[in-house]
Write a protein that binds this DNA or RNA. Structure first.
Lengths: 216, 216
DNA sequence: GCGCCACCTTGTGTATACATAAAGCAGGCT
DNA sequence: AGCCTGCTTTATGTATACACAAGGTGGCGC
């Protein structure tokens, strides 16, 4: 955290991850300047960097807004995201380490447990578990570039995934999926793991439309 | 070219694409300032943006250098790149338009022609054809985000791919691959097209080592 | 003569000031 | 009264100045 630009950048990322910053939200340069007590320069630099990753869009004279995909864009990103997560699962099935196995078991267990004990309650807590599950798989793939790509992509869809867990039965279904995927990875069945993860990430059309409506 | 930052950014991209800027090359802030006749601010902003995409790395007090992957990084990126290009080919097989078909036919033809008439000569010219082939497939996939991701990724490997065409027989092999892939796409065989493209992009280990050695 | 310390130079991050372009508002003209 | 035009305000891009940190070099001391 030597330089302020990075501090601001990671803060913005955190805010997006935490749902404090949602698609369509305006990010005001001036208020960031105030909040961090710095000048415009580092704020601008952070915004440009985050814009370069596609998480933020800067409109001509409207300031920066958190990227809010249109319907087409949403599906386009989802299509890629499913592929990348699928690849990660496939690679994880080949490469997962002993530590990775333990971690995957633990997080899958935690998802099951949440679904069993709390049902559809506390969707935000489950969402955190879900993040951990996907991160664990991503790390097991042993490809830092892939992990990075997945994270960036996930941030573009994050708000929509989060909203999803408010719907009835979704948590139980998610936990079941996770169990299946984890078992395939732990058994080293790369192709099946890839396919299962792809299907898990790729929402059906109805669900996707629900989410877009919820965030409209 | 409203703002200078973008001008500089696209120039840097062009230089990388054209091989004028190669992995490991130092990019001096001061010389860019001189070259474009602007102040440090837009130069810095351009460098930060390009750094955010991973094409440039900024070392503490050494200025910026064009990203030069280690062996591990090289394979990690290649692994992703093959998957993305594969996905693009698969999607193209489903979605290619009439115009896209014509373009794909034309560029595949041009590759064949080059291989038939010039053999292994003029590798740089063939390299341009190769770029056009992959761009045509990428566009046919109708997913602008995927296209963007592929382009960014390709830039990280570009210098190595370019070097590849200096080797004997590689151009002919590449043209043959292109023909096979194009036919699969035009026939709408998505799965086969995806697989063929993935194999086409994913270099065998020996070739990869050759290229890394060539650029060392 | 060799080694250590200090100063200077250079590079990099940050702040601030300035200029330009666009948008909104008001006033005048038709 | 409505529309057009001009002015003002604000935002955004760009330049410049300043401060701090690090590394190199030169001089001085041991």
């Amino acid at each position: 955290m030597a330089n302020q630009t990075e501090t601001i950048l990671t803060s913005l990322h955190d805010w997006i991850d935490a749902g404090r910053l949602n698609p369509g939200d305006e990010i005001d340069e001036a208020s960031l300047v105030q909040h961090f007590g710095v000048s415009r320069t580092p704020v601008r630099e952070a915004l440009m960097q985050i814009e370069a990753t596609g998480l933020v869009k800067r409109l001509p004279r409207k300031g920066a807004v958190v990227f809010k995909p249109t319907l087409e864009e949403f599906f386009a990103i989802l299509e890629i995201h499913a592929q990348l997560e699928g690849q990660a699962a496939g690679l994880a099935a080949r490469r997962i380490s002993a530590n990775g196995r333990a971690a995957l078991q633990a997080v899958t267990e935690a998802c099951d447990e949440h679904a069993a004990r709390l049902g559809g309650a506390e969707p935000d807590a489950y969402y955190q578990l879900n993040l951990r599950f996907h991160a664990t798989v991503g790390e097991a793939a042993s490809n830092p570039f892939l992990l990075d790509l997945i994270k960036t992509n996930a941030r573009k869809l994050m708000a929509y995934y989060r909203a999803r867990y408010r719907y009835a039965g979704v948590i139980a279904e998610s936990a079941r999926d996770h169990r299946v995927i984890a078992d395939l990875i732990l058994n080293g069945d790369a192709d099946a793991a890839e396919l299962a993860m792809r299907r898990h990430v790729q929402l059906d059309q109805l669900t996707a439309m629900d989410l877009l409506a919820a965030l409209a």
